[in-house]
Design a protein around this nucleic acid. Structure first.
Length: 462
RNA sequence: UCCCGGGUAGCUCAGCCGGCAGAGCAGGUGGCUGUUAACCACCCUGUCGGGGGUUCGAAUCCCUCCCCGGGAGCCA
């Protein structure tokens, strides 16, 4: 179907040209002798104003042209004599593909709460809010590839179905083709997964990191960008059961390189959103006031604050703030502690490094003090942890000992230990929760509003 | 999973010390020569989340279940 996109019309159109556009009616306003329609086609934040004079044959069809209707219009592009838009289309013909009964269509020309829109997930992308969010999401996704590709990172596709169950990254979904109504059992009553599809228990991945490591240890610098699954019973505005994660992994790199990469990455992403999503951010800023162009500009330039876990604890201990949870070296930072650091002390993103080994994963490299590991978390205001990374333990003996201590069965992990047996080298990487990034950039409070089909405990639609 | 707060018209909410079910927006009809979530007038709208109980009488009080939101934990 021959049609022009509204985005292109508004940026490159010439007054006087004849155009055809397709889209959905946002609002219709009528006066005596003239009618106006705001049309959206999803290509941009702005709507296209259609003007229908009474004399045009299209005027007679307006009763079926309600909010939500899908239409095709042909007309003349003109400079708009009124304030509010550069161009408008004087419509000569209008074709209605599908109307939308105003009495039944849930999206009318009024404000709706995000909670209500969450209940109509299939229609909410038609709102200007969700249009903005999903376009920003696309800008960010593209920027992720641009950033890594420009630096010579190779995009690797780690498995979604995995046999690794030992990452300590939360509960896993088991996938099986066994008959659920009659599961085969072993002698001791457990499910006999040897009869399952893969001959052993299989899961949906909670992270591509371990696989990314062996790819980094052969291809150099790599990154993953794909879906991740956690079966945790988390009911918060920051957790999803299915989310997208980005995990770069670099060979011949230490924690410093890792932090530099995270910072450059974050800066680049913010810059791209400002360049490509300015009208989306401006809209979200105007309506929700949880994000701002100035803040993003700041984020895209300002160097991150770095603080060690030990110094962070000291900072928290000397604060007069009343915390619900205790602050003590060796205990993990709680949300309230992280928020204090980002919102009150440093007023921006903070990288916390060198956490006690007991509270971090087995694969993180043991520091010379033998008490802490070369880990780093990027904390941002409001959201909290958005990136978690580390230099990986490359020494076979140290890694083996830490795995034994963490009670990780070595027999399934020989492939991982092989990387330390043959041509081991320092390497580092991190994981970035993509939805948290979108959340942070758009200012959406609830993570369920930055993914088209959110999956969470007791929540699955479509 | 735990702690709070909610569920009343299509949407947002008032009514909650028991006594006839309300408002704004949306929608409909009419008016208006250029509107910007237009404006003005009139009209329509109910399983008061489900079930049980107390009472002459329950949206309102009690029990219970379901759902939604906020916070916490876990994490990205």
């Amino acid at each position: 179907m021959q049609r022009s996109r509204i985005k292109n019309i508004l940026s490159d159109g010439n007054a006087g040209q004849s155009i055809t556009v397709c889209g959905w009616v946002r609002t219709r306003r009528e006066s005596k002798g003239i009618a106006f329609i705001a049309l959206s086609d999803g290509s941009t934040q702005d709507t296209l104003q259609l003007v229908i004079p009474e004399a045009a044959p299209a005027f007679q069809k307006l009763t079926h042209c309600n909010t939500g209707a899908a239409v095709k219009v042909t007309g003349l592009l003109k400079e708009s004599p009124a304030q509010g838009q550069k161009f408008e289309v004087e419509v000569s013909e209008i074709e209605i593909f599908g109307d939308a009964d105003p009495a039944a269509y849930p999206l009318q020309k009024k404000g709706h709460t995000l909670e209500f829109l969450r209940e109509i997930g299939h229609l909410r992308p038609r709102t200007n809010t969700f249009g903005a969010v999903f376009r920003v999401r696309n800008i960010l996704a593209k920027a992720v590839h641009e950033f890594f590709q420009s630096r010579g990172f190779i995009w690797v596709h780690t498995p979604i179905i995995t046999a690794s169950d030992c990452e300590g990254a939360g509960d896993l979904f088991t996938i099986t083709s066994l008959p659920l109504e009659r599961l085969p059992a072993t002698a001791d009553g457990a499910v006999d997964f040897s009869q399952d599809f893969f001959g052993k228990q299989a899961y949906l991945t909670v992270s591509g990191q371990l696989e990314a490591e062996f790819l980094a240890m052969s291809l150099g610098d790599v990154y993953t960008f794909g879906p991740t699954f956690r079966a945790e019973n988390s009911n918060t505005s920051r957790h999803l059961s299915e989310f997208w994660m980005i995990e770069p992994e670099m060979a011949f790199a230490d924690l410093k390189d890792d932090m530099q990469l995270a910072e450059d990455f974050f800066h680049f992403l913010c810059r791209r959103v400002l360049e490509k999503g300015d009208s989306e951010i401006a809209f979200l800023e105007k309506f929700y006031k949880n994000t701002s162009v100035t803040e993003l500009r700041d984020l895209s330039e300002k160097p991150f604050v770095h603080i060690s876990y030990t110094d962070a604890i000291e900072e928290l201990e000397k604060s007069k703030e009343k915390f619900e949870f205790p602050v003590k070296w060796g205990l993990d930072l709680q949300s309230e502690h992280e928020r204090y650091l980002t919102d009150k002390v440093f007023k921006g993103p903070v990288i916390v490094t060198d956490y006690p080994k007991e509270i971090k994963a087995f694969y993180m490299r043991l520091n010379p003090d033998e008490k802490t590991v070369a880990a780093m978390d990027l904390l941002v205001p409001k959201i909290g942890e958005i990136i978690g990374g580390s230099q990986r333990e490359e020494r076979l003996d140290v890694l083996t000992e830490r795995m034994l201590h963490a009670e990780i069965p070595l027999e399934n992990m020989q492939w991982y230990l092989d990387l330390r047996r043959f041509g081991s080298a320092p390497h580092a990487g991190f994981g970035l929760g993509f939805e948290r990034l979108v959340q942070y950039v758009t200012g959406m409070h609830n993570i369920r509003d930055v993914i088209p089909c959110p999956r969470a405990p007791q929540t699955i639609k479509f």
